[in-house]
Design a binder for these strands. Structure first.
Lengths: 269, 269
DNA sequence: CAGTGGTCTAGACCACGGT
DNA sequence: CCGTGGTCTAGACCACTGA
């Protein structure tokens, strides 16, 4: 039970302040940067323990009061640390139940902002098909992004997304090869639209975070063929790099989408 | 001095709880929804006082301790309320100095994400020119957005933005007429690129918040002429509605930009 | 019903900013 | 130097969840 906690240390009393009531490293806790506020040191330690996979998604992490007791800090400090993690989207609180590790649902992804004008029904029918999956040498920039040495093969997927039968998005996906070998033995039909859940179920890889960029271009003949549109039509290009909890790149992808189906809204403050 | 505070009430003791130590409406304070947590009631009251312009941008709002005393709540509750306002971008704290009302700097605006490939110099030279300014009847959708009755004239501006001498963005701006009449007597040359500062200086109108949407299209002949590009080239269309602190729409604008100069990046969690 | 997070208080010291 | 926000503690009651 106590091994639920073993990890890095948060830091000794830090700052020789008079009011540091707690002998802070009694129970094998605390140590790190010192000048860092305790709630941040705690945040870092919790983030580390979350990323190394010792806690799962279905059970809550240890309760606030047990954390406070374990680390020898006050409840308020624990709450502050957890608030940070909530703000960062790493964790989510459920009153009466506990604090849970959050998986990204990618609701902030730019490809969420594709409108589907063709769908007159309320529920847009979405279908995903993986047309190709093989080991292949990625372009140098992609290989570098995945942390591969020059010339190493990666896993390549060619995927198409349809809405109400209309082809809207074409994805080119590159995966870090050593972590995703299990995927290659999976029939292509079983890699559905929830590809990140497949990564979890089949390869034990959890995407925690991603970076996306969006730009606009006109379809070359090659891209036009991918999307079954006229060359010269405007297309949206979304590139995404996905990372696990430890910050290692797992996936790089580039999506081409018809530009007339895209609208993005934000609020500025 | 006390009139710095007069405004709405936050609410009587709300919830007949035993631990409600403070006779909460002694000094003319508190009242509102009741079931609302106090820190939210306080947040609402502060937001109201900020929006009605009783406090300015150069001085801090009353200190946490004076707010706590005035409202008869604890310091922690005041801090929680202010944290909300910070999170919403309404206010910003400066340690040792005070808490200040924040003006939006629009750093989150989508038009910030225009890359300027033409500029090889480090500093992109930006120039803004207002080509036209007049009273004009806006399209019904714009008039409605500004809260005008059908057929009422608004103030229209045609503005171009250049980078290193190259025309990149064309703006069509519509302003709520009664608040911006002073603008009409200003020479067009004096409305620079910091148009929101002009609104403040010249008309006393402060933009607190805005909503933006982005979509992609191909240039019609009219738009192609605006941007001096070929018809059929891809263009970015950014529409923005700006609001004052009380939530009234001040400005509606639509910007056309060359698509090949746009790249937007986000992080997903 | 026990346990979790949510709200709230009261009061301490610290670090920073301006006078 | 004083006043501001920043960190931290200790302990209370409330509202919700799930067994």
């Amino acid at each position: 039970m106590n091994d639920l906690f073993e990890g890095r240390n948060i830091g000794p009393p830090r700052r020789e302040s008079l009011f540091s009531q707690n002998a802070v490293d009694q129970s094998g806790v605390l140590s790190s940067d010192q000048r860092l506020p305790r709630y941040l040191a705690l945040r870092d330690d919790l983030a580390y323990k979350i990323s190394d996979g010792r806690w799962n998604f279905v059970e809550p992490i240890p309760s606030e009061s047990s954390l406070a007791k374990h680390y020898g800090v006050s409840l308020g400090t624990v709450r502050r640390a957890i608030e940070e993690l909530v703000r960062e989207g790493i964790v989510e609180r459920r009153q009466g139940s506990g604090t849970y590790i959050r998986r990204s649902d990618f609701s902030g992804s730019l490809s969420h902002y594709l409108r589907f004008r063709s769908s007159h029904s309320k529920i847009a029918f979405q279908e995903c098909r993986v047309l190709d999956m093989q080991k292949k040498t990625p372009p140098p920039s992609v290989g570098e992004c995945l942390g591969l040495t020059e010339g190493t093969e990666a896993i390549f997927l060619d995927r198409k997304r349809f809405h109400d039968g209309e082809l809207l998005v074409s994805d080119e996906i590159w995966l870090e090869p050593s972590r995703f070998t299990a995927l290659l033995s999976l029939p292509r039909e079983e890699i559905g639209s929830l590809i990140y859940r497949t990564y979890e179920r089949c390869c034990g890889q959890v995407v925690a975070r991603a970076e996306e960029s969006l730009k606009v271009s006109v379809a070359s003949t090659a891209v036009a063929a991918l999307l079954e549109i006229q060359p010269g039509s405007p297309v949206i290009i979304i590139e995404r790099t996905s990372y696990d909890g430890a910050g290692h790149a797992l996936e790089w992808r580039r999506s081409y989408a018809k530009a007339d189906n895209f609208e993005y809204r934000i609020e500025i403050r």
